[in-house]
Design a protein around this nucleic acid. Sequence first.
DNA 1: CCTTTTTGAGACAGTATTGTTTCATATCTT
DNA 2: AAGATATGAAACAATACTGTCTCAAAAAGG
Lengths: 188, 188
Amino acid sequence: MTDRRIQKSNRALLDASFQVLLKNPHASLSEVAKQAEVGRATLYRHFPTRENLIKAIAIESLQLIKNSMTPIVTSDLQGKAAIHRMVKVLLPIADRFHFLQMIWTLVEFDQQVWRLYEEQMATIKCWILQGQRQGVLNPDLAADWIVSVLDSMLYSASWIIANNMMETTQIEQQLLQTLFEGIQSNEA
Amino acid sequence: MTDRRIQKSNRALLDASFQVLLKNPHASLSEVAKQAEVGRATLYRHFPTRENLIKAIAIESLQLIKNSMTPIVTSDLQGKAAIHRMVKVLLPIADRFHFLQMIWTLVEFDQQVWRLYEEQMATIKCWILQGQRQGVLNPDLAADWIVSVLDSMLYSASWIIANNMMETTQIEQQLLQTLFEGIQSNEA
DNA sequence: CCTTTTTGAGACAGTATTGTTTCATATCTT
DNA sequence: AAGATATGAAACAATACTGTCTCAAAAAGG
């Protein structure tokens, strides 16, 4: 039915562009095509404009994030346990967060992308409010602030991983520790 | 001695470019010149290349940060108290951090800029190690991780302030609370 | 007041990128 | 195997931005 060539090119382009634009958001589409081992014309056939390409990556990233989170949503995990689990699940795809954060200022997205984004944020916020009601999370902290911190810590972690400054498992442990208990010494 | 026009144009250009490029790193130099109420030719007379302009903003930002931090360095504050104070001092200029973080991937800086940056980071890292030795900061956390978290939390705060989502004083309090004690409820 | 210097406006060439189109070739589907 | 379709290479126009230059006007300094 569907031509295998199309799928192959599409995949190669999505992977390559993510890889290239993550490193350098200014990269020309020639570079992307080259990295994807695909002709420049083919790139334009698949993604008519640059914005179109970036949007496709954004949607794929958000979809990836969503797919990682739904198992947690459908499970009966709540509050702290849910957040704990979420961090573990999202850390491996933290570079997707990085990408979204990076292009956020460069491209104006349409409703579709925003909806996906808001949806994920709403889910996280919901867990936080739940945790606060249950008394496991500090109710003095604004939910928006906590969401933002979570976001930026994942970003930090992704950056450290990308630069090979620490091992993934160690980062995971340190992130959770810091997020829940802060940087203060336990004994203090 | 020095022509007042030069200083005036220079200041206007530095302010305008920071403002414009913070919003949109892609903005053309025409937009910058327009915002600065200065001719495009004048912009090029002051800053021969785009990179040159961005570098100037980066240096000014780093200098600003440095000037904010030196009073703390020369004081005898240490460990937690020093970090506490630092957060308070840096929060008002968090948008400078935001800017640096934003352009970091877009421009390759020369030694001068790197030195200034490394210098600030080293100072912060020094305080953290000190705090860990004194037992006020969790010694299990990597100093690099803590620096990174600090950085990203300031970024979060700056973003929230920029979007008028919370008041500055409240953010300051929440940032310190989260940084030191995490998001966990005290009673938990 | 007179000289020097900066400025703004505009024209200008150079360059890079975008996006389109064509056509022969290779690869798929049936 | 045969027809349909995606692809690569290349040429192409259009655009946008960069960086340079000139010149008259404005503003500074002594």
